[in-house]
Design a binder for these strands. Structure first.
Lengths: 153, 153
DNA sequence: CAATACAAGACTATTATAGTACTATTTCAG
DNA sequence: CTGAAATAGTACTATAATAGTCTTGTATTG
């Protein structure tokens, strides 16, 4: 399964929508309606994407959001990292480990975890937003009901 | 983040332990102690792995578990699939989709999800249990406390 | 036949996620 | 200069998934 949060699914949809005309500013309520999520949820995702540097934001009455780079320069790895955190398999892989992991300094399993994480990351970095963009943008993957299911990877 | 459940971490540890001498039968309590998890939890993981066909089980007073294949023939993809389910990004990717996904039959985004899923799966299938096996087997990756953290991918 | 070990499922508590609301700040228009 | 509209940031609540344990059942050996 290796699940991906629903926010990441929304984020992918939103980024795909914005990639259609990446030059123009789009208000949050417009994006929310186009993608098919509630405004508060869209706001949350948009803020996170903007904080990660994937979107530029314009405040004020004529504000909105805009891709900070071209669709060709944004990958799935960027979107996932923005909304889920660093791509890595174990705590050894990416983050700092507090516990008893360091007791075995030369942990050869650790290097394998890191190798797997890198391979996964490379796979995700190989798909650009431009490749995902297609004219009819609508919530196609949200096949699950408002219930619990999350997306699986 | 793309998290992996803790059971999968345990499962990897258990499989690694069993790979050390894959010819011999190991009782659940022995495995639990060696890996450093409680017996009930070890039982749960072992049963799942056995049901998935990765382990052979022998019941009775001299029973135990055994790798069903050689360590070279077992990959991380096998272990993850056994404990987490099919490797796939979205519902479109692997499972049957119930909702409104079919309304757009030629969904080009879907093929990209599937492509990503396949790349991830290939990355995981490229690491065999033999490569993960090293003499000192102990819970090295379980750096998190019994608390909430899950492993990230 | 009794003891031991695996098999299978149910059940409970905990943790993370999703979703929403509230307040502040910025910008434009009149 | 003032008000409206839009983003920014934070906090809070409910729900769902996960982890972990327990209980009962089945098989095998001595």
């Amino acid at each position: 399964m290796i699940k991906i949060g629903r926010m990441t699914d929304y984020g992918t949809l939103i980024m795909t929508y914005l990639a259609r005309d990446s030059e123009q500013l789009h208000a949050a309520h417009e994006i929310a309606q186009a993608v098919g999520v509630s405004l508060p949820t869209a706001n949350k995702v948009l803020k996170t994407l903007a904080r990660a540097g994937l979107l530029e934001s314009q405040r004020g009455i004529k504000g909105g959001y805009l891709l900070s780079r071209t669709p060709e320069q944004i990958t799935m790895a960027d979107i996932i990292r923005a909304l889920e955190g660093p791509v890595g398999l174990t705590d050894c892989g990416t983050a700092q480990q507090p516990g008893n992991c360091n007791r075995q300094p030369s942990c050869s399993v650790k290097t394998n975890w890191q190798r797997i994480s890198k391979a996964v990351n490379d796979a995700l970095a190989g798909v650009t937003l431009a490749e995902l963009s297609v004219p009819p943008v609508h919530p196609v993957h949200i096949t699950r009901q408002p219930g619990q299911p999350r997306v699986q990877l």
